[in-house]
Every structure is written in C-alpha cells, then in structure tokens.
Amino acid sequence: MSYTITVNGASLVLDVPGDMPLLWALRDIGGLTGTKFGCGMGLCGACTVHIDGEATRACVTPVAAVVGKQVTTIEGIGSDKVGKAVQQAWLELGVPQCGYCQPGQIMSATALLRRNPKPNDRQIDEAMSGNLCRCGTYTRIRAAIKRAADTAGSPT
C-alpha cells in the first residue's frame, strides 16, 4: 500500500503497510534518523514528532493515521522560531550528554512553548514527564526551557 505524507513541508511517499509506525517509516524508509527509538510503546518520548503541531509519539502512530497531516521532525524544527530558540537554549546551557533523547526532548519542549510561552515548573513537569533521559539532564532541560521562553518571545 502506498501512502503520501507530508514531513517538514515535503511529500514523502511510503510503500509500506498502513500499520507500520511512523517512527520506522521515517527512519528506515524516509532516511530521517533524527527521530529516535527508545521503547516502541509510547513510554520514553525519544520518538516525539509534531503532528499538526501536537507532540506525538511516532512509535505508536501508524503511517495510515498521518495522511493529510503535517508532520514535523527534529530535522525540520529549526525552521520554527520557537524550535530554533529551544535548540539555541539547549546549546547555551550544554543540555545534551549522550544526546540520544534530546531530539524528543526538544520536540516536546517546543510544543509546550508554542502553546504556553511562559510555563511554570509544574507545567514543565507535565509537558516533559513523558520524555526519559537516562543521562539525567533534567535540571538543564528545565533551565533551558525557561531560557528559550525568555528568548522566543511570543509564538508564531
């Protein structure tokens, strides 16, 4: 079965079963490997992408479900003003350790800031608690979200 989806503004034609998770379609077929595999069950957030702006776990989202929707991945988030501010804050505060979870963290943080430009600690907890980091970068993630909130200004 062939599906055409929109990823980072471009069309991607996928000749895959409709139940293939978006994660594997992006990575193995689309060659977009920035979106990571961590659990395959929606438990770790490593695979977070935006679907029509909503932070979504690509590992539990079938390809068939995203036809006609806008998918944004870590490779494309830098063209968003908020996404760019988040990436910048991540660099300024030296958030990444191994870096593996960070694409997912950045996608979740960007989605948060787009809907809530000045999140408090509790709101950060709520938005980010689905993203695991085994290296333990949480204190810097929190600080970087606040930094990005200061620099991003109002969402686009």
Binding site: T33, G34, K36, G78, L91, G94, P96, G99, Q102, P103
Partner: peptide, 21 residues
C-alpha cells in the same frame, strides 16, 4: 568551549549506531 557534538545533537544530525544506513 561549547560541546563539539552539540549542534548535531540538537538538530537530529548526530549519528548513533542505530542511525547507520
């Protein structure tokens, strides 16, 4: 000194074993 792999890590370009193609 900034993290040498930082820019790749925040943009999805960093290459881990699982990303080998």
């Amino acid at each position: 000194v900034p993290l040498i792999d930082g820019p790749d890590m925040v943009s999805g370009r960093a290459q881990y074993s699982i990303d080998v193609r």
